[in-house]
């Protein structure tokens, strides 16, 4: 079985994000980057499927991103992925979802695929669109925000749970399909020391847009960011105090009713 997992390099969840001086994006200096947290569940699920199916099953990591993403791809290979494709091209900086999907579709068609795992969204632009547009471009179904995944014995379909408001939607899909992964789907493994050693020898195939047969950035020019806005400054916190805790609580209730009128 040919398993593809998508990996994106994003700023760490604990990173402070500030707008740059020109107001055209964020300040990238000093930012720590990590594998998009949801992509870790995708890698883990890909590895689990390979282990279940066995034979000559293979997990290929596909990443679109700058040169620096290589070290994160190595981490995925150290977790156990077999090889990787890394699309690096300056024209792809700040690519929108349609551009990303078109490029990924090209790579994935070249690689061949039986199932594709990815994170439910990347925690930078938070669009959560690429996987679904990609599914449309590849003419396959997708199941988003999966919290459970079970491959059928014949490998032709899967049953899943997907997280929705106030519950879980039990889903069934034919394969090939794209599955976007939610926290809770599994516990991503850590890279072992032998894994890290092995990863150094695994192949990362670098490709540019030209290598993929694109003369220019595909499918771009749909949206325009008008401006970047910082968070509104938060006001002063009113600390409610009293000799007796009970009186402080009483005062808090009064403020919530009379001042802010939320109760």
């Amino acid at each position: 079985m040919k398993i593809i997992t998508l990996l994106k390099r994003v700023p760490d969840t604990e990173a402070r994000i500030l707008i740059n001086q020109e107001g055209t994006g964020i300040r990238e200096d000093g930012l720590k980057y990590v594998i998009n947290p949801y992509d870790e569940y995708a890698i883990e699920e890909g590895l689990k499927v390979r282990e279940k199916v066995g034979g000559d099953s293979k997990v290929t990591v596909v990443t679109m991103g700058p040169e620096e993403a290589t070290e994160l791809i190595r981490t995925a290979l150290a977790m156990g992925a077999d090889d990787a494709v890394h699309i690096v091209d300056p024209l792809l900086e700040n690519a929108g979802p349609f551009t990303s999907a078109a490029v990924l579709a090209k790579v994935i068609e070249e690689e061949g695929f039986d199932i594709i795992f990815c994170g439910k969204q990347a925690i930078d632009d938070d669009m959560a669109q690429v996987q679904t547009i990609l599914a449309e471009m590849l003419d396959i179904p997708q199941v988003n925000v999966a919290t459970e995944f079970e491959l059928s014995d014949d490998g032709k379909k899967a049953v899943l749970s997907r997280r929705i408001e106030g519950g879980d939607e039990k889903y069934e899909t034919a394969l090939p399909a794209i599955i976007s992964c939610e926290k809770g789907l599994n516990e991503p493994r850590y890279a072992s020391l032998p894994g890290i050693m092995k990863a150094k020898k695994k192949e990362i195939r670098k490709k540019t847009l030209a290598d993929l047969g694109f003369e220019t950035k595909p499918q771009g020019g749909r949206a325009e960011i008008v401006r970047w806005l910082p968070l509104p400054k938060s006001g002063e916190c009113k600390i409610v105090e009293a000799e007796e805790l009970q009186d402080a609580v009483k005062e808090l209730v009064r403020l919530l009713r009379e001042e802010s009128k939320v109760l």
Binding site: I17, I26, D124, A223, V226, R227
Partner: peptide, 13 residues
């Protein structure tokens, strides 16, 4: 964007 750490205003081209 960035999980609500900043905002953008966006329009179609």
């Amino acid at each position: 964007v960035y999980s609500g750490k900043v905002f953008i205003e966006i329009t179609s081209k």
